[in-house]
Design a binder for these strands. Structure first.
Lengths: 236, 236
DNA sequence: TAGCACAGTTGAACGTGTTCAACGTCACAT
DNA sequence: ATGTGACGTTGAACACGTTCAACTGTGCTA
């Protein structure tokens, strides 16, 4: 499962441990067996015994490479971000206005995750557990989080739309929180093709855009400042 | 304008099935054993065997009353909500302004959940899983959800603050979503006494209050209407 | 070549949530 | 008193995720 060619350091935040060719081969076999069985039979119906059998190894051997069945699902997560960045590239290189840049980035996020909607829904619970290293707020997820925020910083920095100076600094993080909300909706979305999630994006992006524009209006300045202050205080 | 809190049917949303005294006693014993063990040891560390043993029944007997371990957590939801309603009573009966009513209700929610903070953090991941009956959006949680929204409807209806007519109808559900956000923060909150969560409430309630007040401003009317429309469309 | 250290591998075993066929209990009609 | 049938209860059994002491292969050094 070769990682897509990284166009920059922001993409390669996953430090794969060095493995001998033998180990690499086994690990890959387990991964591929797991992903295939997950696809074919779903998460619960796929047993660790079946994964090991399909990979041609013993049951316990899978646990030498992956600490748990859940960790196997994590592979989707790691590959997804790289795919997301790649899928955003076209939009981020051509579009200069804030709203379409944000819209394209969010839609790309759902695009690349689409085929794995069922798995992501399963995986989501690990991201939601506060004590889990897989939580987006955890210390262990810091590189992944920074990478995601960096992507939104690119959305902001590359846009010609005028944005309040103070807001501009915090906006990437706010957009990341916003994207988490979209994902939260998405994992619960059972509409065909997750059409409702795309609707949600298409209809809330203009709101976000308007909010950003309003940040330059004098009367709302203090409110915006308060929001930024709250986020900053709560983060620590 | 402030309607006295009704001790009526909105509080007793739990339709307990008719049981013989014998069954009632067993069911109660299982529930109490489960809640106590959950609180003391957390969700995962509490086994069905331990619950059954503490309740003085066989393991399989617990499954006569509850289809699964998760179903026992529903009991926690229901008990917790009853406590929440009780803790809100004082505020909702005396206070007439929107902001303090909302603030009091949210703070009461954290107050009564306090003892279960550790437990909540542990089992939160099960609630975050979309397909889980423990999800606040699930069909199984519907009664709990409706009851919670009803409580926020009481917050809105009993407040003398002038609120846009259209917003007023959707506001309870919006406030419920807001409260879920607070809970999401709360389970991640490791500050002593969850002080940060109380801070979050104290600082975001004025924002919500301001937003509600702004709903009557002409220029923002269309935006408010759009937000309401989005929530309505996404819910279905 | 022999020995060594360690990465890689094994499958039985453990504890878990859950199921199920069998059994007990009790009100009630006969 | 004696079936009767629904309700309530049991504990062994099942499949699962996970662990672990023991084993095997591999590359290295002497």
């Amino acid at each position: 499962m070769a990682a897509p060619a990284a166009a920059g350091p922001t993409l390669t935040y996953v430090a794969e441990p060095d493995l001998t060719p033998r180990a690499e081969q086994t690990r890959t076999a387990i991964t591929e067996a797991a992903l295939r069985l997950f696809r074919e039979n779903g998460y619960e119906a796929t047993t660790m015994r079946a994964i090991a059998q399909q990979a041609g190894v013993s049951t316990g051997n899978a646990y030498y490479y992956f600490g748990s069945k859940e960790e196997l699902v994590q592979q989707f997560y790691e590959h997804s971000h790289a795919d997301h960045v790649a899928a955003c590239r076209a939009i981020l290189e051509t579009e200069t206005e804030f709203a379409p840049r944000l819209r394209g980035t969010l839609r790309a996020m759902i695009d690349v995750s689409g085929p794995y909607h069922g798995f992501a829904a399963r995986f989501f619970k690990h991201a939601a557990e506060p004590s889990s290293p897989l939580s987006p707020f955890s210390k262990e997820s810091s590189p992944a989080r920074e990478a995601a925020i960096a992507l939104f910083r690119e959305v902001v920095d590359g846009s010609s739309t005028r944005i309040d100076r103070e807001l501009r600094g915090q906006l990437p993080e706010l957009l990341w929180l916003y994207s988490l909300g979209v994902i939260l909706f998405w994992v619960h979305d059972t509409s065909p093709g997750c059409a409702k999630t795309y609707q949600l994006i298409d209809r809330t992006v203009p709101l976000a855009d308007r909010l950003v524009a309003l940040s330059r209006v004098r009367i709302l300045r203090s409110t915006i400042r308060e929001i930024i202050s709250i986020v900053a205080d709560m983060r620590s």
